[in-house]
Design a protein around this nucleic acid. Sequence first.
DNA 1: GTGAAAGCGCTAACAG
DNA 2: CTGTTAGCGCTTTCAC
Lengths: 337, 337
Amino acid sequence: MTTLSQVAQRAGVTSATVSNVLRQRGKVGADTRARVLAAVEALGYRPHLTARALAEGRAPTLALMVSSIANPFYPEFALAAEQAARQHGRFLIVCNTNDDPDIGRAYLDQIAGTLSDGVLVMNANICIEDLQATARRGATVVLGMWEKPHQPPALPCVAVDFHLAGALAARYLIALGHRKIGVMVGGGVCGVHAERERGFNDALLELGHGDAVVHRMMVHDSVEGGLQGGAAMLAAAPSITAVFATNDLPALGLMHAAADLGIKVPQQLSVIGLTDIQGAHQARPALTTVAVPTAQAAAMSVALLLELIAEPQSVAPMRIAPAPELVVRASTARRSD
Amino acid sequence: MTTLSQVAQRAGVTSATVSNVLRQRGKVGADTRARVLAAVEALGYRPHLTARALAEGRAPTLALMVSSIANPFYPEFALAAEQAARQHGRFLIVCNTNDDPDIGRAYLDQIAGTLSDGVLVMNANICIEDLQATARRGATVVLGMWEKPHQPPALPCVAVDFHLAGALAARYLIALGHRKIGVMVGGGVCGVHAERERGFNDALLELGHGDAVVHRMMVHDSVEGGLQGGAAMLAAAPSITAVFATNDLPALGLMHAAADLGIKVPQQLSVIGLTDIQGAHQARPALTTVAVPTAQAAAMSVALLLELIAEPQSVAPMRIAPAPELVVRASTARRSD
DNA sequence: GTGAAAGCGCTAACAG
DNA sequence: CTGTTAGCGCTTTCAC
């Protein structure tokens, strides 16, 4: 490892000067600068980020807390977050809480404010109290994807209008003529998708079809959950012609359940999901869904986090991500029965 | 932020003593310890990881370099790696290179040896020279999943026998009676899967069916690649009864291509992949594949990395992960034509 | 322009 | 058992 002072020594200057040329700060003579740069080059010097962070009184990383990076929704968010962070000279630490509040708390205790000065929180089943305690200790916390723009949370956040997302799904299904609809609410350890369902139901009411939902069930928020729940739903309510799943994963599972039962999607059954994960357009039939602006929300969250770190006061604590959008693919069709 | 010396002051001792009680080091009197702990509690003290790392002369994180965390293969690896790292008190930084050697180099230059003392490298299209330069600068580098156990690389690694993986696929297809086989080699920016194909071909030769491959093509290593390539292959070589894809993603794409053409899998066409990503068993039909020990390799890589950091010399530079295993699901069947 | 010095928060000898 | 003393590598005033 080469240190600043080694470079300084070789260049015949002091480490302060080397620091100055490296960070284009202060005035340095042209020849001195040249000598310094030559020494840097010759020694292969690289600044020690840990030391720099300590001296600057800031942490070099941002932390991303998710329940599990293996959940297909998060990698897209993480990718965008990491790229945004890197553009600002920060690195991204991923923290998998496994939906265990203790792990979440342990993470916050350890890295918030010391290794990471900013924490980006996704659904990770972390107690809001823990987050607030973390914020009180001086770390900056941002909720990466808050589901209720009309109901600001206690912490800074980037909000996505999931109520609208649900409504878009409802309007589309109604427009296609569906009047007997099943709803699969992804829940499980991640908590329920209440706002999405509310948006769906509200839109139905507005359209005068408040009675269109003939079957509703909670399922685990996964392909498996949708598969099992879907099989049960299709058996229990054979009259339904369309299903809205509050998440793509269960929607995909439902399509499998339909396939297993010989029910043709979309001819006999329309399926619409919500989120638009990668797997959605790769499925067969490709899943119609309401796309949520994952990457944008990630980038906005990082930006918000960094602004809050820089100027804790003068920043509005909530930003609204672009509106969700209906993405029509092949899993939905006009009611034909 | 509370610092050690604040705690010390409140407890009426010196910071060294506080440090000692916190890290169970040295001998501390019971009453002193109690007072210190009380102060820690009262002040809500949390050790500053950055400062600690600097003082200890080590970096607090491990870096995971991947081409893109959004590629479905990596999150599983990343999850296991992060958990292993955390058990050893380290945090995991994810570095997406986007297969750009410049980004890879920039990452290595910045964090290796300063923020991360260990670097875990997956296929990320990083020049081996850059990695070696990094190692020479003092950082520890481990290749997370080396494909050729019989050909140790220039850097420490965890090897997975992909030659065997390919062979398992070949044996199974032959056992099912297939004699006209297509091979889809995932390539694209990630580089080709040469070893997998070699294993497949070698096994075919061994079994006396060296001529079974009637069509071979390179495709982009993605669902899209498999979809496009698959359509082309099925059009060009309608006689094939089975396809081996060197990765699950193209295999999944191929199944879609077959579905689009009305070709029934597995009745008319058997498809076998390699890796066993999450999506494989969620597909319809569920994909038969050769499972690679992703999570184990991740855990082993982290262990190797940490041992190398602790004792650079005395550690064997290559470890072999558990052997790949055939996972029979629903996309393959006995040849029936 | 450049250097000297203090300090970020913590650890690690070594003294006492 | 506990305190003193040096740093870790870097940044940042403030003199010169």
